[in-house]
């Protein structure tokens, strides 16, 4: 499948799954609200009647912020609020893994009408597998990051600034290690996406198989998969730029401005979540396209083979597997 076609199909699919999109957003919103309520109360109780806070409507003020931060009660409260925020973040991370299973299942069976029952089944079915997959890829990313840091240290004689002639050597090392890391990390982020999709399509409890096989799927079709990944990344960059551009025109110096800024921010978050679904949907289409192409190739090579035996063979990664979604389509 052409990556543009997958990209376009993903866009359409994003709107067909609007229920889970809004659900994802609602959870994001509610958890952030939960994390921020103590801070809201703290600001209101310590600063709520100070003219200094009113002046902040016109713009940021370091003195007001620092005097607030230095207050004895605030000094103690801020670390507690930060801890609560971190816990909320962890909770959201787990919830996001949970929801991703449902999203992937809905996308896999995209020809069916969206039903929340179907979605929740996916969430519960794939949670632990996606959780383990996430851990594997976190390990992979840690290794890539270590490699990049190692490269940087190698180029800067151990990172000791006193041993360098100038800080330009730092910058030059960053110019090499930074892009190398970004390129490598983006490839592994992409493989991670295909691993998720592949795992849901295989519907296999054994996690290492989709983990390794996804490398073959993504890399053997690199010139399809990577441009699609870059296109999806471009969507995020575009969204972020649009938000950055628009928010400059909103002055949150009165209630209307504050409400507008809030609405724009929420619109951006909603769009970000949508772009994530778009990304997964387009990758699912690309994945299914690749598998169908392989299936057709296989049918041409082995025309006399009974079709019900192997509707999909992932021959290049050394393992034969039946793809249940194809079975379903054939049925």
């Amino acid at each position: 499948m052409n990556f543009f076609v997958a990209f376009g199909k993903g866009f359409v699919q994003m709107f067909r799954s609007i229920g889970m999109w809004l659900l994802f957003y609602a959870l994001n919103f509610l958890l952030a609200l939960f994390a921020i309520i103590p801070l809201d109360n703290l600001i209101a109780s310590k600063l709520g009647r100070s003219l200094a806070l009113g002046d902040l409507l016109e713009g940021y003020d370091y003195t007001t912020y620092s005097d607030f931060r230095n207050l004895p009660g605030v000094r103690d409260a801020l670390p507690a609020i930060l801890n609560q925020s971190l816990l909320t973040l962890l909770l959201f991370f787990l919830l996001a893994i949970f929801l991703t299973g449902g999203i992937l299942k809905v996308l896999r069976d995209h020809k069916e009408r969206f039903r929340f029952q179907h979605f929740w089944t996916g969430c519960s079915t794939y949670f632990w597998r996606l959780f383990r997959l996430t851990l594997y890829f976190l390990l992979v990313h840690a290794m890539i990051l270590s490699l990049a840091i190692g490269l940087f240290l190698f180029l800067t004689e151990g990172g000791n600034i006193l041993s360098l002639d100038s800080e330009l050597e730092y910058l030059n090392a960053l110019k090499i290690a930074g892009p190398a890391y970004l390129f490598l990390a983006s490839i592994f982020f992409m493989i991670h996406d295909y691993a998720k999709v592949h795992m849901v399509h295989l519907d296999d409890n054994w996690m290492l198989r989709p983990f390794w096989q996804s490398f073959g799927i993504a890399l053997s079709n690199f010139f399809r998969t990577y441009p699609l990944y870059l296109l999806n990344a471009l969507v995020f960059v575009g969204l972020f730029s649009a938000y950055w551009y628009l928010q400059q025109y909103i002055q949150p110096s009165d209630a209307r401005g504050v409400a507008l800024a809030f609405a724009l921010g929420q619109g951006f978050i909603l769009a970000r979540i949508g772009s994530k679904i778009w990304n997964l949907a387009s990758i699912t289409f690309m994945y299914q396209g690749i598998q169908q192409r392989r299936q057709r190739k296989k049918e041409i090579v082995q025309p006399n083979e009974p079709t019900d035996m192997s509707p999909l063979i992932i021959s290049d990664v050394g393992s034969e597997e039946t793809a249940p979604f194809l079975k379903k389509e054939e049925e």
């Binding site: 609200l33 209101a44 600063l47 504050v258 800024a261």
Partner: peptide, 18 residues
């Protein structure tokens, strides 16, 4: 009470959190 200012910063922090 400086409600608008409180909400301005609370909503900003909330957006960062999101």
């Amino acid at each position: 009470p400086q409600t608008t200012a409180v909400k301005k910063y609370s909503s900003r922090f909330m957006l960062w959190m999101q």
